[in-house]
Amino acid sequence: MSINEEPTKLKPTDYASDQEVRWCPGCGDYAILNAVKKTLADKQAKKENTVFVSGIGCSSRLPYYMATYGFHTIHGRAPAFAAGIKITNPELDVWVITGDGDALSIGGNHFIHLLRKNLNCQVLLFNNEIYGLTKGQASPASRTGTISPSTPGGSLEAPISACELALSSGGTFIARGVDTAIKQLVPTLSKAQEHLGTSLVEIYQNCIVYNDDVFKSFTDKSVALEKQIHLEHGEPMLFGENNKKGLSINKDYSGLEVIDLELNEKDISRVLIHDYTNKTIANLLTQMDQNSMPVALGIIYCVEKPTLDQYYTEKLNKHKNEISNIMEKGQTWTI
């Protein structure tokens, strides 16, 4: 390799822009940024073909920190910008960076329609269950009872589940990860990028300033094994110490239940095998109550469907008319 040639192999740091990262020290966003850079490096993604599009919020600053193309837009609307970008140039690899307020509150409409239209892009939803950038108000993802500047007596509203909403909106790739669990997050992001269609990855992200430890009940090292289930397509849904617990359909078919294999090894036959094309089970996985059940992580749902950009490309390829012919169509007269 001659000295003038670009190094052929890009490292994660090669995807970093020269801008100083300005998140609060200890914020979960740092870990996600690293996972994103690592994912791109693993794939040797072309910087010039990669575009990060974001809305408004702490997470939405991410594009400034990437050495790729980036567009920091307006609150909640990143999916709409992404649609315009992809229908114009389907070759671009578009990553939408959003948060729980951005995607589920002010941008709720764009979020559901992006999923419905199945634009080929990745949506990384940094869920910290709070409005960080505006100093800590309750968000639509906050749990009932959340005390915040706007809900001093505790919020009354029930939270929305991003993955459940995405499923019912017709999403074709729905996954979850935890900010600091880079080992699991990177392969999930990688699969998301490969998926043709809108890939939603909800990332539980700790806001150290306004909602610290809100996910501790399942992310803390001491409980992680018992409170997380890492889904693998085609594998039994096992978790816990030595995989001694499994998920099964409950007796009245209304939800999932935990089976303790230590009590009866034979129950292994009742444990579900993860089939990420099964929408009914995917629904049940997203609905599990965090108190009594583990949190489902990894790829919950994944199916193939035509994408919006594919539809556009095909349609545009069929457009063959010349303007002058169209102008002369219909009734004309000559003088």
Binding site: F71, F81, I85, K86, N89
Partner: peptide
């Protein structure tokens, strides 16, 4: 927003 996205992408 989509129209702006179109222009951003070079359309």
């Amino acid at each position: 927003c989509s129209a702006i996205g179109v222009s951003y992408a070079g359309g």
